[in-house]
Design a protein around this nucleic acid. Structure first.
Lengths: 218, 218
DNA sequence: ACTATAATTTAGACAAGTCTAAAAATAGGA
DNA sequence: TCCTATTTTTAGACTTGTCTAAATTATAGT
Protein backbone atom coordinates (compact mmCIF):
# COMPACT_ATOMS: atom_id res chain seq x y z
CA UNK A 1 0.00 0.00 0.00
CA UNK A 2 1.43 3.37 -1.00
CA UNK A 3 0.83 6.83 0.40
CA UNK A 4 -1.22 9.54 -1.25
CA UNK A 5 1.94 11.47 -2.06
CA UNK A 6 3.71 8.46 -3.51
CA UNK A 7 0.75 7.71 -5.74
CA UNK A 8 0.64 11.28 -6.98
CA UNK A 9 4.31 11.23 -7.85
CA UNK A 10 3.93 7.94 -9.74
CA UNK A 11 1.04 9.37 -11.70
CA UNK A 12 3.01 12.51 -12.56
CA UNK A 13 6.05 10.49 -13.67
CA UNK A 14 3.80 8.30 -15.80
CA UNK A 15 2.35 11.32 -17.60
CA UNK A 16 5.74 13.02 -18.04
CA UNK A 17 7.42 9.91 -19.45
CA UNK A 18 5.59 10.56 -22.72
CA UNK A 19 7.62 13.75 -23.21
CA UNK A 20 10.79 12.66 -21.38
CA UNK A 21 11.59 9.34 -23.00
CA UNK A 22 15.10 9.13 -21.53
CA UNK A 23 14.04 9.90 -17.97
CA UNK A 24 11.93 12.51 -16.20
CA UNK A 25 14.00 15.40 -14.87
CA UNK A 26 13.73 16.56 -11.29
CA UNK A 27 12.71 20.06 -12.33
CA UNK A 28 9.99 18.84 -14.68
CA UNK A 29 8.57 16.73 -11.89
CA UNK A 30 8.81 19.61 -9.44
CA UNK A 31 6.80 21.81 -11.78
CA UNK A 32 4.18 19.12 -12.41
CA UNK A 33 3.81 18.46 -8.68
CA UNK A 34 3.88 22.17 -7.83
CA UNK A 35 6.65 21.64 -5.33
CA UNK A 36 10.40 22.26 -5.00
CA UNK A 37 13.16 20.26 -6.67
CA UNK A 38 14.62 19.33 -3.30
CA UNK A 39 11.34 17.77 -2.23
CA UNK A 40 11.26 15.82 -5.47
CA UNK A 41 14.73 14.43 -4.86
CA UNK A 42 13.67 13.27 -1.40
CA UNK A 43 10.59 11.55 -2.72
CA UNK A 44 12.41 9.95 -5.65
CA UNK A 45 14.80 8.35 -3.20
CA UNK A 46 11.90 6.91 -1.29
CA UNK A 47 10.22 5.61 -4.43
CA UNK A 48 13.53 4.16 -5.52
CA UNK A 49 13.93 2.39 -2.18
CA UNK A 50 10.49 0.85 -2.74
CA UNK A 51 11.47 -0.33 -6.24
CA UNK A 52 8.80 1.85 -7.83
CA UNK A 53 11.25 3.82 -9.99
CA UNK A 54 14.71 3.44 -11.46
CA UNK A 55 16.92 6.29 -10.47
CA UNK A 56 20.55 7.32 -10.83
CA UNK A 57 21.62 10.65 -9.40
CA UNK A 58 21.43 13.54 -11.85
CA UNK A 59 20.08 11.17 -14.55
CA UNK A 60 16.34 11.61 -14.12
CA UNK A 61 13.82 8.99 -13.11
CA UNK A 62 11.77 6.29 -14.87
CA UNK A 63 9.00 4.03 -13.60
CA UNK A 64 9.80 0.40 -12.86
CA UNK A 65 7.32 -2.25 -13.94
CA UNK A 66 5.79 -2.13 -10.46
CA UNK A 67 5.69 1.66 -10.56
CA UNK A 68 3.96 1.65 -13.91
CA UNK A 69 1.35 -0.84 -12.75
CA UNK A 70 0.67 1.26 -9.68
CA UNK A 71 0.39 4.47 -11.70
CA UNK A 72 -2.01 2.86 -14.16
CA UNK A 73 -4.14 1.56 -11.30
CA UNK A 74 -4.42 5.10 -9.90
CA UNK A 75 -5.26 6.48 -13.35
CA UNK A 76 -7.89 3.76 -13.77
CA UNK A 77 -9.53 4.84 -10.53
CA UNK A 78 -9.35 8.52 -11.44
CA UNK A 79 -11.04 8.00 -14.78
CA UNK A 80 -13.70 5.63 -13.50
CA UNK A 81 -14.66 8.17 -10.84
CA UNK A 82 -14.76 10.94 -13.44
CA UNK A 83 -17.09 8.84 -15.54
CA UNK A 84 -19.27 8.19 -12.48
CA UNK A 85 -19.43 11.87 -11.57
CA UNK A 86 -20.54 12.89 -15.06
CA UNK A 87 -22.78 9.99 -16.01
CA UNK A 88 -24.42 9.23 -12.67
CA UNK A 89 -24.23 12.38 -10.59
CA UNK A 90 -24.79 14.87 -13.38
CA UNK A 91 -21.55 16.84 -13.13
CA UNK A 92 -20.20 18.82 -16.07
CA UNK A 93 -16.99 17.44 -17.52
CA UNK A 94 -15.07 20.51 -16.41
CA UNK A 95 -15.99 20.07 -12.74
CA UNK A 96 -14.83 16.56 -12.03
CA UNK A 97 -11.04 16.64 -12.02
CA UNK A 98 -10.41 17.89 -8.49
CA UNK A 99 -12.93 15.52 -6.94
CA UNK A 100 -11.50 12.58 -8.86
CA UNK A 101 -8.05 13.58 -7.60
CA UNK A 102 -9.32 12.79 -4.13
CA UNK A 103 -11.38 9.71 -4.98
CA UNK A 104 -8.54 8.05 -6.87
CA UNK A 105 -6.73 7.37 -3.59
CA UNK A 106 -9.50 5.36 -1.92
CA UNK A 107 -8.13 1.91 -1.14
CA UNK A 108 -10.40 -0.99 -2.04
CA UNK A 109 -10.04 -3.32 -4.98
CA UNK A 110 -13.61 -4.48 -4.66
CA UNK A 111 -14.89 -0.90 -4.69
CA UNK A 112 -13.28 -0.27 -8.05
CA UNK A 113 -14.30 -3.55 -9.64
CA UNK A 114 -17.89 -3.05 -8.49
CA UNK A 115 -17.88 0.56 -9.65
CA UNK A 116 -16.53 -0.53 -13.04
CA UNK A 117 -19.32 -3.08 -13.35
CA UNK A 118 -21.96 -0.57 -12.17
CA UNK A 119 -20.83 1.87 -14.85
CA UNK A 120 -20.92 -0.81 -17.56
CA UNK A 121 -17.15 -1.13 -18.01
CA UNK A 122 -16.67 2.21 -19.77
CA UNK A 123 -13.73 2.49 -22.16
CA UNK A 124 -13.22 6.27 -22.02
CA UNK A 125 -13.59 8.98 -19.40
CA UNK A 126 -15.56 12.20 -20.03
CA UNK A 127 -12.46 13.87 -21.53
CA UNK A 128 -11.99 11.06 -24.03
CA UNK A 129 -9.03 9.49 -22.25
CA UNK A 130 -8.95 5.69 -22.19
CA UNK A 131 -9.84 3.92 -18.92
CA UNK A 132 -7.45 1.03 -18.17
CA UNK A 133 -9.20 -2.26 -17.38
CA UNK A 134 -8.57 -4.33 -14.23
CA UNK A 135 -5.45 -5.80 -15.89
CA UNK A 136 -4.09 -2.36 -16.70
CA UNK A 137 -4.73 -2.67 -20.44
CA UNK A 138 -6.18 0.27 -22.29
CA UNK A 139 -6.84 1.22 -25.89
CA UNK A 140 -4.16 3.41 -27.36
CA UNK A 141 -6.04 6.16 -29.07
CA UNK A 142 -5.77 6.37 -32.85
CA UNK A 143 -6.18 10.09 -32.63
CA UNK A 144 -4.75 13.28 -34.13
CA UNK A 145 -5.05 16.93 -33.25
CA UNK A 146 -7.80 18.86 -35.01
CA UNK A 147 -5.09 21.19 -36.30
CA UNK A 148 -3.61 18.27 -38.24
CA UNK A 149 -6.88 17.51 -40.01
CA UNK A 150 -6.91 18.52 -43.68
CA UNK A 151 -9.46 20.72 -45.42
CA UNK A 152 -12.73 18.98 -46.33
CA UNK A 153 -11.89 16.00 -44.06
CA UNK A 154 -14.01 15.06 -41.10
CA UNK A 155 -13.56 13.24 -37.82
CA UNK A 156 -15.06 12.65 -34.38
CA UNK A 157 -14.04 14.50 -31.23
CA UNK A 158 -12.43 11.99 -28.88
CA UNK A 159 -10.44 13.96 -26.36
CA UNK A 160 -8.75 17.11 -25.17
CA UNK A 161 -5.07 17.74 -24.58
CA UNK A 162 -5.57 20.71 -22.27
CA UNK A 163 -8.26 19.81 -19.75
CA UNK A 164 -8.31 23.15 -17.96
CA UNK A 165 -11.66 24.38 -16.79
CA UNK A 166 -11.43 27.38 -19.12
CA UNK A 167 -10.88 25.25 -22.20
CA UNK A 168 -13.62 22.78 -21.31
CA UNK A 169 -16.04 25.64 -20.69
CA UNK A 170 -15.15 27.13 -24.06
CA UNK A 171 -15.95 23.83 -25.76
CA UNK A 172 -19.27 23.54 -23.97
CA UNK A 173 -20.20 27.10 -24.88
CA UNK A 174 -19.53 26.37 -28.54
CA UNK A 175 -21.41 23.10 -28.45
CA UNK A 176 -18.33 21.00 -29.02
CA UNK A 177 -18.50 17.68 -27.14
CA UNK A 178 -16.90 14.25 -27.30
CA UNK A 179 -18.47 11.99 -29.89
CA UNK A 180 -19.60 14.81 -32.15
CA UNK A 181 -18.64 14.91 -35.82
CA UNK A 182 -16.53 17.82 -36.96
CA UNK A 183 -15.58 18.84 -40.50
CA UNK A 184 -12.89 21.26 -41.64
CA UNK A 185 -14.32 23.71 -44.16
CA UNK A 186 -11.41 26.12 -44.51
CA UNK A 187 -7.94 26.62 -43.09
CA UNK A 188 -6.29 30.03 -42.88
CA UNK A 189 -2.55 29.85 -43.35
CA UNK A 190 -1.67 33.26 -41.88
CA UNK A 191 -3.02 32.62 -38.34
CA UNK A 192 -3.70 28.89 -38.34
CA UNK A 193 -7.39 29.37 -37.63
CA UNK A 194 -9.97 27.21 -39.32
CA UNK A 195 -13.64 27.21 -40.18
CA UNK A 196 -15.34 24.01 -39.07
CA UNK A 197 -18.79 22.52 -39.31
CA UNK A 198 -20.23 20.91 -36.20
CA UNK A 199 -23.90 19.86 -36.06
CA UNK A 200 -24.77 22.08 -39.02
CA UNK A 201 -23.18 25.11 -37.40
CA UNK A 202 -20.23 26.89 -38.92
CA UNK A 203 -17.65 27.94 -36.36
CA UNK A 204 -14.31 29.74 -36.59
CA UNK A 205 -11.67 28.18 -34.37
CA UNK A 206 -8.23 29.53 -33.43
CA UNK A 207 -5.08 27.47 -33.74
CA UNK A 208 -4.81 27.29 -29.96
CA UNK A 209 -8.13 25.49 -29.83
CA UNK A 210 -7.42 23.16 -32.74
CA UNK A 211 -4.10 22.26 -31.12
CA UNK A 212 -5.87 21.03 -28.00
CA UNK A 213 -8.69 18.97 -29.44
CA UNK A 214 -8.18 15.34 -30.46
CA UNK A 215 -10.04 13.88 -33.41
CA UNK A 216 -10.49 10.28 -34.48
CA UNK A 217 -10.53 9.86 -38.28
CA UNK A 218 -10.60 6.25 -39.59
CA UNK B 1 -11.32 22.77 6.06
CA UNK B 2 -10.22 20.22 8.66
CA UNK B 3 -7.74 17.38 8.46
CA UNK B 4 -8.64 13.72 8.27
CA UNK B 5 -7.49 13.20 11.85
CA UNK B 6 -9.43 16.15 13.14
CA UNK B 7 -12.60 14.90 11.46
CA UNK B 8 -12.12 11.45 12.94
CA UNK B 9 -11.72 12.85 16.43
CA UNK B 10 -14.84 14.98 16.05
CA UNK B 11 -16.80 11.96 14.91
CA UNK B 12 -15.56 9.90 17.85
CA UNK B 13 -16.40 12.64 20.35
CA UNK B 14 -19.86 12.96 18.82
CA UNK B 15 -20.54 9.25 19.27
CA UNK B 16 -19.11 9.14 22.80
CA UNK B 17 -21.11 12.15 23.99
CA UNK B 18 -24.18 9.93 24.14
CA UNK B 19 -22.58 7.93 26.96
CA UNK B 20 -20.49 10.72 28.48
CA UNK B 21 -23.04 13.47 28.99
CA UNK B 22 -20.78 15.58 31.22
CA UNK B 23 -17.78 15.42 28.90
CA UNK B 24 -15.84 12.74 27.03
CA UNK B 25 -12.83 11.50 28.97
CA UNK B 26 -9.38 11.37 27.44
CA UNK B 27 -9.09 7.64 28.00
CA UNK B 28 -12.46 6.87 26.43
CA UNK B 29 -11.44 8.86 23.39
CA UNK B 30 -8.07 7.14 23.28
CA UNK B 31 -9.73 3.74 23.25
CA UNK B 32 -12.25 4.76 20.58
CA UNK B 33 -9.49 6.17 18.38
CA UNK B 34 -7.15 3.24 19.09
CA UNK B 35 -4.39 5.59 20.16
CA UNK B 36 -2.69 6.77 23.36
CA UNK B 37 -4.09 9.20 25.89
CA UNK B 38 -1.18 11.57 25.34
CA UNK B 39 -1.94 11.78 21.63
CA UNK B 40 -5.55 12.54 22.49
CA UNK B 41 -4.54 15.40 24.77
CA UNK B 42 -2.43 16.88 21.98
CA UNK B 43 -5.26 16.67 19.49
CA UNK B 44 -7.84 18.03 21.90
CA UNK B 45 -5.69 21.10 22.38
CA UNK B 46 -5.60 21.63 18.66
CA UNK B 47 -9.36 21.16 18.30
CA UNK B 48 -9.87 23.52 21.19
CA UNK B 49 -7.66 26.12 19.50
CA UNK B 50 -9.88 25.84 16.42
CA UNK B 51 -13.04 26.32 18.51
CA UNK B 52 -14.30 22.85 17.61
CA UNK B 53 -14.49 21.63 21.20
CA UNK B 54 -14.81 23.03 24.71
CA UNK B 55 -12.05 21.79 26.91
CA UNK B 56 -10.79 22.34 30.43
CA UNK B 57 -7.81 20.35 31.62
CA UNK B 58 -8.71 17.10 33.37
CA UNK B 59 -12.42 17.82 32.79
CA UNK B 60 -13.05 15.96 29.55
CA UNK B 61 -14.13 17.43 26.25
CA UNK B 62 -17.40 18.39 24.56
CA UNK B 63 -18.18 19.48 21.03
CA UNK B 64 -18.85 23.14 20.35
CA UNK B 65 -21.69 24.04 18.00
CA UNK B 66 -19.18 24.23 15.14
CA UNK B 67 -17.67 20.91 16.16
CA UNK B 68 -21.06 19.25 16.25
CA UNK B 69 -21.98 20.58 12.81
CA UNK B 70 -18.72 19.33 11.41
CA UNK B 71 -19.11 15.89 13.00
CA UNK B 72 -22.65 15.56 11.66
CA UNK B 73 -21.48 16.52 8.18
CA UNK B 74 -18.86 13.75 8.29
CA UNK B 75 -21.44 11.26 9.56
CA UNK B 76 -23.83 12.33 6.81
CA UNK B 77 -21.14 11.58 4.23
CA UNK B 78 -20.26 8.26 5.83
CA UNK B 79 -23.84 7.04 5.82
CA UNK B 80 -24.64 8.27 2.31
CA UNK B 81 -21.61 6.43 0.98
CA UNK B 82 -22.62 3.29 2.87
CA UNK B 83 -26.06 3.49 1.30
CA UNK B 84 -24.47 3.95 -2.12
CA UNK B 85 -22.16 0.97 -1.66
CA UNK B 86 -24.99 -1.36 -0.68
CA UNK B 87 -27.78 -0.11 -2.93
CA UNK B 88 -25.83 0.75 -6.07
CA UNK B 89 -22.64 -1.28 -6.00
CA UNK B 90 -24.08 -4.45 -4.48
CA UNK B 91 -21.98 -4.64 -1.33
CA UNK B 92 -23.15 -6.56 1.74
CA UNK B 93 -23.94 -4.39 4.75
CA UNK B 94 -21.03 -5.88 6.68
CA UNK B 95 -18.45 -4.88 4.06
CA UNK B 96 -19.02 -1.18 3.74
CA UNK B 97 -17.77 0.40 6.93
CA UNK B 98 -14.05 0.58 6.16
CA UNK B 99 -14.59 1.94 2.66
CA UNK B 100 -17.02 4.56 3.94
CA UNK B 101 -14.40 5.56 6.54
CA UNK B 102 -12.24 6.64 3.64
CA UNK B 103 -14.95 8.14 1.44
CA UNK B 104 -16.35 10.29 4.26
CA UNK B 105 -13.30 12.55 4.08
CA UNK B 106 -13.66 13.52 0.42
CA UNK B 107 -14.06 17.29 0.25
CA UNK B 108 -16.81 18.53 -2.06
CA UNK B 109 -20.18 19.89 -1.03
CA UNK B 110 -21.57 19.42 -4.50
CA UNK B 111 -20.44 15.79 -4.57
CA UNK B 112 -22.48 15.01 -1.49
CA UNK B 113 -25.57 16.94 -2.52
CA UNK B 114 -25.55 15.27 -5.94
CA UNK B 115 -24.95 11.85 -4.39
CA UNK B 116 -27.83 12.45 -1.98
CA UNK B 117 -30.10 13.34 -4.89
CA UNK B 118 -28.88 10.37 -6.95
CA UNK B 119 -29.70 8.01 -4.08
CA UNK B 120 -33.17 9.53 -3.64
CA UNK B 121 -32.48 11.33 -0.35
CA UNK B 122 -32.35 8.19 1.80
CA UNK B 123 -33.30 8.56 5.45
CA UNK B 124 -31.38 5.59 6.88
CA UNK B 125 -28.12 3.82 6.09
CA UNK B 126 -27.87 0.03 5.63
CA UNK B 127 -27.42 -0.46 9.39
CA UNK B 128 -30.59 1.45 10.16
CA UNK B 129 -28.83 4.59 11.38
CA UNK B 130 -30.41 7.90 10.35
CA UNK B 131 -28.72 9.93 7.61
CA UNK B 132 -28.56 13.65 8.45
CA UNK B 133 -29.89 15.93 5.71
CA UNK B 134 -27.93 18.85 4.21
CA UNK B 135 -28.97 21.00 7.19
CA UNK B 136 -27.72 18.43 9.67
CA UNK B 137 -31.22 17.38 10.76
CA UNK B 138 -31.95 13.71 11.22
CA UNK B 139 -34.77 11.62 12.61
CA UNK B 140 -34.19 10.53 16.17
CA UNK B 141 -34.98 6.87 16.20
CA UNK B 142 -37.94 5.77 18.29
CA UNK B 143 -36.24 2.49 18.91
CA UNK B 144 -35.60 0.04 21.73
CA UNK B 145 -33.34 -2.95 22.11
CA UNK B 146 -34.85 -6.31 21.22
CA UNK B 147 -33.98 -7.42 24.76
CA UNK B 148 -36.40 -4.79 26.09
CA UNK B 149 -39.31 -6.11 24.02
CA UNK B 150 -41.93 -7.97 26.04
CA UNK B 151 -43.23 -11.47 25.40
CA UNK B 152 -45.83 -11.73 22.64
CA UNK B 153 -44.99 -8.23 21.38
CA UNK B 154 -43.65 -7.58 17.92
CA UNK B 155 -41.58 -4.94 16.18
CA UNK B 156 -39.49 -4.17 13.12
CA UNK B 157 -35.70 -4.41 12.99
CA UNK B 158 -34.35 -0.90 12.46
CA UNK B 159 -30.71 -1.01 13.45
CA UNK B 160 -27.77 -2.57 15.21
CA UNK B 161 -25.78 -1.31 18.15
CA UNK B 162 -22.70 -3.41 17.48
CA UNK B 163 -21.88 -3.18 13.78
CA UNK B 164 -18.92 -5.55 13.85
CA UNK B 165 -18.52 -7.77 10.85
CA UNK B 166 -19.05 -10.87 13.02
CA UNK B 167 -22.37 -9.64 14.32
CA UNK B 168 -23.64 -8.52 10.92
CA UNK B 169 -22.63 -11.88 9.44
CA UNK B 170 -24.50 -13.65 12.22
CA UNK B 171 -27.63 -11.67 11.42
CA UNK B 172 -27.36 -12.43 7.73
CA UNK B 173 -26.85 -16.13 8.43
CA UNK B 174 -30.02 -16.21 10.53
CA UNK B 175 -31.99 -14.27 7.99
CA UNK B 176 -32.40 -11.23 10.23
CA UNK B 177 -32.35 -7.99 8.24
CA UNK B 178 -33.49 -4.40 8.63
CA UNK B 179 -37.16 -3.91 7.95
CA UNK B 180 -38.16 -7.44 8.91
CA UNK B 181 -40.85 -8.09 11.50
CA UNK B 182 -39.81 -9.93 14.63
CA UNK B 183 -42.00 -11.31 17.43
CA UNK B 184 -40.97 -12.46 20.89
CA UNK B 185 -42.46 -15.90 21.62
CA UNK B 186 -40.71 -16.69 24.90
CA UNK B 187 -38.17 -15.16 27.24
CA UNK B 188 -35.91 -17.24 29.46
CA UNK B 189 -35.14 -15.53 32.74
CA UNK B 190 -32.11 -17.63 33.72
CA UNK B 191 -29.89 -16.72 30.73
CA UNK B 192 -31.80 -13.89 29.10
CA UNK B 193 -32.20 -15.76 25.83
CA UNK B 194 -35.43 -15.54 23.89
CA UNK B 195 -37.35 -17.44 21.28
CA UNK B 196 -38.42 -15.21 18.40
CA UNK B 197 -40.42 -15.57 15.24
CA UNK B 198 -39.04 -14.01 12.09
CA UNK B 199 -40.59 -14.71 8.69
CA UNK B 200 -42.36 -17.80 10.02
CA UNK B 201 -39.13 -19.22 11.42
CA UNK B 202 -38.63 -19.83 15.12
CA UNK B 203 -35.20 -18.86 16.32
CA UNK B 204 -33.48 -18.92 19.72
CA UNK B 205 -31.44 -15.80 20.38
CA UNK B 206 -28.93 -15.14 23.16
CA UNK B 207 -29.06 -12.04 25.33
CA UNK B 208 -25.91 -10.74 23.68
CA UNK B 209 -27.70 -10.68 20.34
CA UNK B 210 -30.93 -9.18 21.68
CA UNK B 211 -28.88 -6.47 23.37
CA UNK B 212 -27.42 -5.38 20.06
CA UNK B 213 -30.47 -5.29 17.84
CA UNK B 214 -32.75 -2.26 17.69
CA UNK B 215 -36.48 -2.68 17.17
CA UNK B 216 -39.13 -0.16 16.28
CA UNK B 217 -42.48 -0.93 17.86
CA UNK B 218 -45.91 0.29 16.64
C1' DA C 1 -8.46 14.72 55.63
C1' DC C 2 -4.97 11.62 53.82
C1' DT C 3 -3.14 8.53 50.74
C1' DA C 4 -2.91 5.15 47.04
C1' DT C 5 -4.32 4.54 42.55
C1' DA C 6 -6.07 5.93 38.33
C1' DA C 7 -6.47 9.45 34.87
C1' DT C 8 -4.43 13.09 32.53
C1' DT C 9 -0.92 16.12 30.95
C1' DT C 10 3.84 17.42 29.83
C1' DA C 11 8.36 16.79 27.84
C1' DG C 12 11.02 15.12 24.45
C1' DA C 13 11.43 12.16 20.45
C1' DC C 14 10.24 10.28 15.88
C1' DA C 15 8.48 9.61 10.77
C1' DA C 16 6.53 11.68 6.63
C1' DG C 17 6.65 15.25 3.62
C1' DT C 18 7.82 19.66 2.85
C1' DC C 19 10.91 23.93 2.78
C1' DT C 20 15.31 27.22 2.29
C1' DA C 21 20.00 27.82 1.59
C1' DA C 22 24.19 26.01 0.29
C1' DA C 23 27.07 22.62 -2.05
C1' DA C 24 27.96 19.55 -5.87
C1' DA C 25 27.45 17.83 -10.50
C1' DT C 26 26.39 18.47 -15.29
C1' DA C 27 26.24 20.66 -19.85
C1' DG C 28 27.22 24.06 -23.29
C1' DG C 29 30.05 27.74 -25.28
C1' DA C 30 34.48 29.74 -26.08
C1' DT D 1 39.68 21.87 -22.30
C1' DC D 2 37.91 25.10 -19.11
C1' DC D 3 34.58 28.14 -17.25
C1' DT D 4 30.01 29.52 -16.27
C1' DA D 5 25.09 28.84 -15.91
C1' DT D 6 21.80 25.56 -14.86
C1' DT D 7 20.26 21.50 -12.67
C1' DT D 8 20.34 18.52 -8.96
C1' DT D 9 21.45 17.05 -4.42
C1' DT D 10 22.51 17.67 0.48
C1' DA D 11 22.00 19.58 5.06
C1' DG D 12 19.25 21.24 8.41
C1' DA D 13 14.78 22.85 9.82
C1' DC D 14 9.63 22.84 10.25
C1' DT D 15 4.66 20.79 10.71
C1' DT D 16 1.40 17.15 11.71
C1' DG D 17 0.30 13.47 14.25
C1' DT D 18 2.06 10.02 16.77
C1' DC D 19 4.80 7.68 20.66
C1' DT D 20 7.17 6.60 25.57
C1' DA D 21 8.30 7.93 29.98
C1' DA D 22 7.83 10.99 33.62
C1' DA D 23 5.25 14.37 36.16
C1' DT D 24 0.96 16.14 37.72
C1' DT D 25 -3.91 16.18 39.04
C1' DA D 26 -8.11 13.97 40.41
C1' DT D 27 -10.69 10.41 42.91
C1' DA D 28 -12.08 6.92 46.09
C1' DG D 29 -11.44 4.42 50.34
C1' DT D 30 -10.53 4.66 54.91
Amino acid sequence: MFSLSEENYLKAIFHLERSYKTGVSTNALAEEMETKASSVTDMIKKLSGKKLVNYRKYQGVRLSELGRETAIEVIRKHRLWEYFLVEKLGFQWDEVHDIAEQLEHIKSEKLISQLDKFLGFPKRDPHGDPIPDAQGKFVVANKILLSELEKEKMGICVGVKDSSVDFLRFLDKNNIALGKEIKVLEKETFDGSMLVLIENNELRISQIVSNNLYIKTN
